[in-house]
């Protein structure tokens, strides 16, 4: 989340002699029994279902899993992953999907928020609800209805296409339109959370800046471009990183709408991981693929952080 909370210096005893430092430590521990007890439930679940699995995931990625025992195979899983054509295609598809949909998400969020912000309170909350409502609905439902709208024979889209005088399109059935259809869907789902976050950030901007600019003779667009957009940069960064992470995890649409097909046209990383793990039970390979996914997301997040931060004053 790009957030660095100011951490108070919590426990930082002055460097003293080794033994007495140890003593201080133990006394401290003893004194804070309650604190540990309060943390206990979280720590147990965190250890069992987060910490251990993360470490385990890395370990597994160097093993070949077998129901009756696993063997070490070095980096073979990583080699296999990159040698697999389907995995490479899925990487590319996911990348393409992200590169198109994430900027679209952020941009439409910014535009809609800009349009909504000057409106009255009632209109604001109406539009906020209208744009956010579709995003609280489960992706499974959204995918089901979009699959229905993309239906070749009876779908809403081919009806509209027909009204425009064009031939019906086999949206999810052709390689050249399948991924595109999923991207269109993702773009047309309103960026509800983005809009709300932008609106909140816009309301925090110091109004005197605008007044000063007004006196300098800046028009509405100039004020938006020179004040609003730069002031929103941290929010933009936050949304970019957040939606990139989400976008790299695209899965529900795939399994509900295309199954990765036709051919490999809509294979995505997570769908491949899912199949590798829970159809083929190559847990080692699946872990390696997950680790690769993790690093790609990391690299993207760092890259976005750098570019959007660097030109900020």
């Amino acid at each position: 989340m790009g957030i660095k909370p100011a951490l108070k210096t919590d426990f930082d005893p002055k460097p003293v002699k080794k033994q007495s430092r140890m003593k201080v430590l133990l006394i401290q521990i003893n004194k804070n029994k309650v604190a540990y007890l309060f943390l206990m439930p979280k720590l147990i679940f965190f250890a069992l279902f987060m910490l251990i699995p993360i470490v385990w995931s890395f370990v597994l990625s160097f093993q070949e899993f077998n129901i009756m025992g696993s063997t070490w195979v070095g980096i073979e899983n990583y080699v296999d992953a990159f040698q697999s054509k389907v995995f490479r295609i899925s990487l590319w598809n996911t990348l393409l999907y992200t590169i198109i949909t994430v900027p679209a998400f952020v941009l439409t969020a910014l535009l809609i928020a800009t349009l909504v912000q000057p409106l009255g309170k009632l209109s604001q909350s109406f539009f906020r609800a209208a744009f956010y409502l579709p995003t609280v609905t489960s992706m499974v439902i959204i995918a089901m209805v979009w699959r229905w709208m993309y239906n070749y024979k009876f779908g809403l889209f081919n009806y509209i296409v027909g009204l425009l005088g064009m031939d019906p399109v086999n949206w999810l059935g052709q390689s050249d339109t399948a991924l595109l259809s999923l991207m269109i869907m993702s773009i047309l789902i309103p960026p509800g959370s983005g809009i709300i976050i932008y609106l909140a950030a816009m309301n925090e901007i110091d109004q005197t800046l605008y007044e000063a600019a007004k006196i300098d003779g800046a028009n509405t667009f100039q004020r938006w471009w020179r004040i609003t957009v730069p002031m929103l940069k941290p929010t933009t960064l936050y949304l970019f990183i957040l939606s990139t992470i989400g976008s790299f995890q695209v899965f529900t649409q795939i399994i509900m709408m295309t199954g990765g097909g036709p051919g490999n046209a809509t294979e995505t990383i997570v769908h491949v991981i899912y199949k590798t793990a829970f159809r083929d039970f190559k847990f080692g390979l699946a872990s390696a693929q997950s680790v690769i996914l993790f690093f790609i997301i990391m690299i993207f997040a760092i890259f976005q952080y750098r570019t959007l931060r660097s030109d900020h004053h």
């Binding site: 989340m1 951490l7 979280k42 965190f46 069992l48 279902f49 987060m50 910490l51 251990i52 699995p53 993360i54 385990w56 995931s57 597994l60 992470i245 790299f248 995890q249 899965f251 997570v270 991981i273 899912y274 793990a277 829970f278 847990f283 699946a286 872990s287 997950s290 680790v291 996914l293 993790f294 997301i297 997040a301």
Partner: peptide, 22 residues
């Protein structure tokens, strides 16, 4: 604190298989 916070950005899929095994 940092151990917990640093897992915030880790996607669900990374721990999918080990969590399943757990």
């Amino acid at each position: 604190f940092w151990a917990i916070i640093s897992t915030m950005m880790i996607p669900e899929q990374v721990t999918l298989v080990p969590t399943f095994m757990m």
